[in-house]
Write a protein that binds this DNA or RNA. Sequence first.
DNA 1: TTTTTATATGAATAGTTGTTCATATATTCA
DNA 2: TGAATATATGAACAACTATTCATATAAAAA
Lengths: 116, 116
Amino acid sequence: MEEELKCTVKHQDIIERVKTKMPKEEILFDIAELFKVFGDTTRMKIICCLFESEMCVCDIAELINATQSAVSHQLRVLKQAKLVKYRKEGKVVYYSLSDRHVEIIFNMALEHIQEM
Amino acid sequence: MEEELKCTVKHQDIIERVKTKMPKEEILFDIAELFKVFGDTTRMKIICCLFESEMCVCDIAELINATQSAVSHQLRVLKQAKLVKYRKEGKVVYYSLSDRHVEIIFNMALEHIQEM
DNA sequence: TTTTTATATGAATAGTTGTTCATATATTCA
DNA sequence: TGAATATATGAACAACTATTCATATAAAAA
């Protein structure tokens, strides 16, 4: 790891400054994990469904044209990331977004995409 | 795909409404691709370095404790996603963020993380 | 109680991705 | 020109991930 690096540029002042301002390793990891969850088309579609209203699993599956199983697996990922919450009504489970951040983050990305 | 789905809940009114408001497949794909780029710790670290100032490859490598090769590969990914730009000065290449959206998206995620 | 329906989940598999290693390219310096 | 330095890149490999298939669970309906 060190041996391979022969570069000697090292703007030491900048390096020091950045080092102090850089978020902790653990926070960077968590943020990357969060973005990883957004980084899948199926999950992105599910999230978009939920912008409108809460929705049950089989409606989501129909809407995004995926199997019930695939949707259920991905909802679990979203649930673990605390991006969605759910309520049960008999045998039907209704999912919804857990907070407004999701939509804000989505819109920022959309804006970035559309400017390119 | 269809045969496995026996669910018959189908709130047809909601399905129709969501269908019309849902962004196009292609846009959702692009957004997911963008988030995928954010969804890696190494790239996240590189991005954080660049919040402060432009920086050359070997300084980034030293700062985040990664090999020159790994950093270079990931800078390529960031470049393809148009998240970073670069300028050459002799044999040294200085990378910087291509726009302010990156920081906004990052901060939204940070906020979300810290509320959980 | 048996059947049907809605959802969840484990295992297997195929596809993707990040790192490393070796090497290529390009620029500077002696 | 030749050596050293900064960066880029292709190939190989290991690790991870999303889907499918089969099946489990749980609630409702018959």
